[in-house]
């Protein structure tokens, strides 16, 4: 039982937090701009490298340098929206999906070009896990990731329900025509969607890079699970995406637990298939997700 918590549940919550933060952006972009953003994983990678570069110049704790990664991700996201997505907005959204596929490739090749293609770590050296109540052994990073995600989720909730801008975003996501008739500035909402989506993506990228190491494929490899999380939470429901991310993360990790015999229930090498099967099952049987998201 203790092993289950230490080795499966907490790592599951950690990777789940990464998925959650990434899925918020995917869900909001899907809800407001109505396309599946295939470059979101690579946007995470860009944010992660932004912080990695800052660490080279200012050797303090990477989490304190998050603003650098966030800024880089926001600038990148707004630039690709302006140059690559906006010109296609009048067309069927599938063209924007194809464009975002290309943007994913552009981001990744830029990451490989500027930061080379190997694995790089934020801070070297082994950190001992913190022992709580003599039983729980949780690494410092995992605690930071989970608690920061919690704080962000609460802040996001208040932003979306209390602030004028947040409410406008939800309105555009739920009823775009009505929102336009009511005089909401759609372009401003789109801009802020990118700002929030990119910030969260950058934070998620840094978390993922600190948990393992930074490499150019980091974000792309997480993309499928984040899509699954966004669908699970309901498209256009940021809070749902956070819940979805945590659930997918926990499901992936605990699927490899020795549930019924001494063998892992699902071989760890097939871990990333778990998210896929959850996603397909949802799309077939409950496409609106847990929280009644939008249907395409």
């Amino acid at each position: 039982m203790i092993d289950f918590i230490n080795l499966y549940l907490v790592p599951g919550l950690t990777i789940g937090s990464v998925y959650a933060l990434g899925a918020v952006g995917i869900s909001m972009i899907f809800g407001i701009l109505r396309f599946a953003h295939f470059a979101h994983g690579d946007l995470m990678t860009i944010g992660g490298y932004g912080v990695l570069t800052a660490v080279w110049f200012i050797p303090i704790h990477p989490l304190l340098l998050l603003p650098f990664g966030i800024a880089l991700a926001i600038v990148s996201a707004l630039a690709v929206d302006q140059f690559f997505y906006k010109p296609l907005r009048k067309l069927p959204t599938i063209y924007t999906v194809i464009a975002s596929f290309g943007v994913a490739l552009i981001f990744r090749s830029l990451a490989q070009l500027f930061w080379n293609s190997g694995n790089q770590v934020f801070t070297s050296g082994v950190r001992m896990p913190v022992v709580l109540f003599d039983t729980f052994r949780i690494s410092e990073l995992h605690m930071q990731v989970i608690s920061l995600t919690l704080v962000i989720a609460i802040a996001l909730h208040f932003f979306l329900t209390r602030s004028k801008l947040g409410r406008a975003m939800r309105a555009v996501s739920d009823e775009p025509e009505l929102a336009a008739v009511a005089g909401l500035d759609t372009e401003k909402v789109v801009r802020w969607t990118w700002v929030i989506g990119a910030s969260m993506a950058a934070i998620a990228g840094v978390f993922a890079g600190m948990d393992t190491s930074m490499h150019p494929n980091l974000g792309w490899n997480l993309l499928l699970a984040m899509f699954a999380a966004a669908v699970l939470g309901g498209i256009g429901k940021p809070m749902g995406a956070i819940a979805g991310g945590l659930i997918i993360g926990i499901a992936e990790e605990t699927a490899t637990f020795t549930w019924f015999s001494d063998e892992p229930f699902i071989s760890p090498s097939y871990k990333s298939a778990v998210a896929f099967f959850i996603m397909v099952a949802l799309l077939l049987f409950r496409p609106q997700g847990l929280f009644k998201g939008r249907l395409l």
Binding site: F35, A36, V97, V231, V280, L296
Partner: peptide, 18 residues
């Protein structure tokens, strides 16, 4: 639908690779 099929097909390629 289109976008969902795109997501699913990425997953299929990944599973076949695995």
């Amino acid at each position: 639908k289109s976008d969902y099929l795109a997501m699913a097909s990425v997953g299929i390629a990944e599973i076949l690779r695995l």
